[in-house]
């Protein structure tokens, strides 16, 4: 299905630090269009340890497709090539059945809007229990205890009551915390969060992200935070990749973002209105500068 040039070789991080959790080499995602194949991800490579990596970009930059490709969720006619090594295993060579054992259990994903990613006809408790039973065979009493513990871990203290609610009965912020609880219950090593708070109010965004951050750090997990929001990613990640038109245009430590050099990154930073805004006009990206669209 996909090329696996280096098999399941364990790779070192770029700084030669801890062995990598995930290694992505020359990842390319292509979709056919009437005007020929479109490369939505174009030769992306990065190494991820047990750290927090932010992937930032605007719509169409390929950031979400990257997250989906890692989980092998790109369906035909989309085509994926390149190498994906996770915990020393070559993901590209796994069968669909083996891959199902990776999804959720070892790598899980939180998506943008809990209203769409939670099952509307199941209670919160049943859904978390289902996530647990998919990967383990716990007894009934244990399921109940683990569901309660999962809800408490995301600071939903009234766990028994919340477990009986349906998704439409919870707020957006609560829904996203439930989603995180569900994704973390099988104890994955990597969490991919794709715009996890874009559907939430700013005051709740901070709360949800701090919670996710605490859990990821406490469990020593890796995190890939995908977002269009540069300040948010800078705040909650160690390292940042800025994507544009399927490629990484800039890669830097989050703390160095303000020293970004690529005109696209600089343009994005400048285009955001600031709280102490005094500019009469916002600078607009000159897309011709790097052949963008």
């Amino acid at each position: 299905m996909m090329a696996s040039p280096e098999g399941s070789e364990m790779r070192q991080g770029p700084e030669g630090a801890a062995p990598g959790l995930l290694s992505v080499r020359d990842l390319t995602v292509t979709f056919p269009t009437p005007r020929g194949p479109a490369r939505v991800v174009d030769g992306l490579s990065f190494e991820l340890g047990r750290e927090r990596l932010g992937i930032v970009g605007e719509s169409g930059s390929g950031k979400s497709m990257t997250g989906r490709a890692i989980l092998r969720l790109i369906r035909p006619p989309g085509r994926v090539t390149g190498g994906l090594t996770f915990e020393g295993r070559d993901l590209t060579s796994l069968s669909e059945r083996q891959m199902r054992a990776v999804r959720g259990a070892r790598i899980s994903m939180v998506m943008q809007d809990p209203r769409y990613s939670l099952n509307p006809v199941m209670t919160v408790g049943e859904q978390i229990a289902e996530a647990l039973r998919t990967h383990e065979r716990p007894g009934r009493a244990e399921v109940r205890a683990r569901v309660r513990e999962a809800l408490r871990s995301v600071r939903l203290d009234d766990a028994d009551r919340i477990a009986r609610l349906y998704p439409h009965e919870v707020s957006g912020g609560m829904g996203q915390r439930i989603m995180i609880a569900m994704m973390l219950i099988p104890k994955p090593a990597l969490l991919i969060a794709d715009e996890p708070t874009s559907a939430l109010d700013v005051s709740i965004q901070g709360e949800v992200l701090r919670l996710m951050d605490d859990l990821v750090r406490a469990r020593g997990m890796g995190l890939i935070l995908i977002s269009h929001d540069l300040p948010l990613v800078a705040r909650y990640c160690d390292r940042i990749l800025v994507m544009h038109a399927g490629r990484v245009v800039e890669s830097c430590a989050a703390s160095e973002l303000h020293r970004a050099t690529h005109p696209y990154t600089r343009g994005l930073l400048a285009a955001v209105p600031r709280m102490d805004e005094t500019r009469a006009e916002l600078p607009v990206l000159d897309r011709s500068a790097w052949g963008g669209t």
Partner: peptide, 26 residues
């Protein structure tokens, strides 16, 4: 928005949360 001189505590908290988010870019 620039000096944070809101009279109401809720406005102040809304401003503070948004500021916290905003300042990281710069």
């Amino acid at each position: 928005l620039r000096d944070g001189a809101f009279a109401d505590p809720y406005s102040r908290s809304l401003h503070a949360e948004s500021l916290r988010h905003d300042t990281e870019a710069d």
